[in-house]
Design a protein around this nucleic acid. Structure first.
Lengths: 224, 224
DNA sequence: CCGCGATTAATTGGATCCAATCTGCTACTT
DNA sequence: AAGTAGCAGATTGGATCCAATTAATCGCGG
């Protein structure tokens, strides 16, 4: 097997995503290209192309001749994202259920365990990523690549705040319960029940996140 | 009022969009950066950033070290786009109706006339753009910017084929009738009726487009 | 004659360099 | 003293240049 040759902008893309996710780059903050490029040890060229991608996903916005700024979500915006997720995830689940094989469901169960393991370790980034994999394994079974892409964008838009949510006490137990419920309903091939669990799961996250929106989060790391 | 200073990549962006829309760049074709850049009279740098945006909208795809290619939609993909449009446009209309003022509806009516005027002139590009404005004036009244953005992407994805559709004889009369129906239902604030018209409008377009997908379209202009 | 491998041309990816624009400060006018 | 014009520094936008990767052709061997 030949090893992958990661192009520089893919690398930068990953770095950018995690920096936004972990709060190194805070909402509202301007991104100084030179500074960030040297921080990543690359030139500005691949950074700018990577930023154009992130901009397309709505995580940063661009103002000509002024620069890029990390987007800041207000409550209305957040509610819109969750409303769209509600509509689209229902569609994804409906399309996915008939396609899901037993082995795939088993694999999804394994990922659920990974989430729990990550939760035990307390690694916020690991939890977020594992949780994402869990849900998207279902979505991807829909065989609707464009739908999956849109859902990815919607999840990306709120991921900045999601890690804060996971940090809240008691959230992890709630998540574990919902995941178990989803899994059980998947095994029974009970579409409506899966949707019910997923809806409640999402609603719970939204109310928690809405609370967090008032109290601004503290910086994790600051880049000059 | 100060005039706008269009940055180069915005210019390139517009050029790229119309080139894809009008078929100068055909589905499946590779985009040779140097060739296209010189055609636009610019360097490759702004072209590449513009392409990253278009890629995010799904109109072209990128393969590392190989290049950019204009995306080609198969029937399954096309059906997915229309299914997603169905779901999301319904949501947009539901959210929009309560917000629509009489003056706004009047303005939408004016745009419907523009579509007819464009249809009479036979200018395919003008028809496409006017038609788009008509529908998006409704969508934008939803006050859901993210939803509008996603819908824009979905419309973009099929616009390459839409002009072919408009060229089909009899289509224009059908379109005019549907638009009139939508307008009337808007004036009556009858949400379900608007959705019914919009659904039928869309379904008609899909069946026509599906036909076109078999017979490959002839090139309009070819760039070396 | 067909398949496989190496060399070469073409194209993309990344870095550096220069020009255009914005922002904040200073000084001047009223 | 307040406001505005203009100047200087910083930052972004665009162009050119060089390196890395791909694919295509040619040649060799089976």
């Amino acid at each position: 097997m030949k090893e992958k040759s990661p192009t520089t902008q893919e690398l930068v893309l990953r770095l950018l995503r995690t920096d936004i996710l972990t709060g190194v780059l805070r909402p509202g903050q301007q991104i100084i290209q030179e500074s960030l490029a040297s921080r990543y040890g690359v030139s500005r060229a691949p950074l700018r192309e990577a930023m154009k991608i992130i901009e397309g996903e709505g995580q940063i916005i661009h103002s000509p001749h002024r620069g890029y700024f990390v987007t800041e979500l207000d409550l209305a915006n957040m509610r819109e994202v969750y409303r769209l997720r509600e509509i689209l995830e229902r569609e994804a689940i409906r399309a996915a259920i008939p396609n899901l094989t037993d082995t795939e469901i088993q694999a999804i169960g394994a990922v659920a365990d990974e989430v729990s393991a990550a939760a035990a370790s307390g690694e916020l980034l690991a939890i977020t990523l594992a949780n994402r994999r869990f849900h998207f394994m279902v979505f991807e079974a829909s065989q609707m690549p464009r739908l999956v892409r849109i859902l990815t964008q919607l999840w990306d838009a709120t991921d900045v705040y999601r890690s804060v949510y996971f940090a809240a006490p008691g959230s992890m137990a709630h998540v574990a319960r919902d995941h178990a419920g989803i899994l059980e309903a998947l095994r029974a091939r009970d579409t409506d029940e899966v949707i019910r669990w997923q809806d409640s799961h999402r609603d719970h996250a939204l109310t928690r996140l809405a609370d967090q929106l008032d109290s601004p989060r503290r910086p994790v790391i600051t880049v000059r």
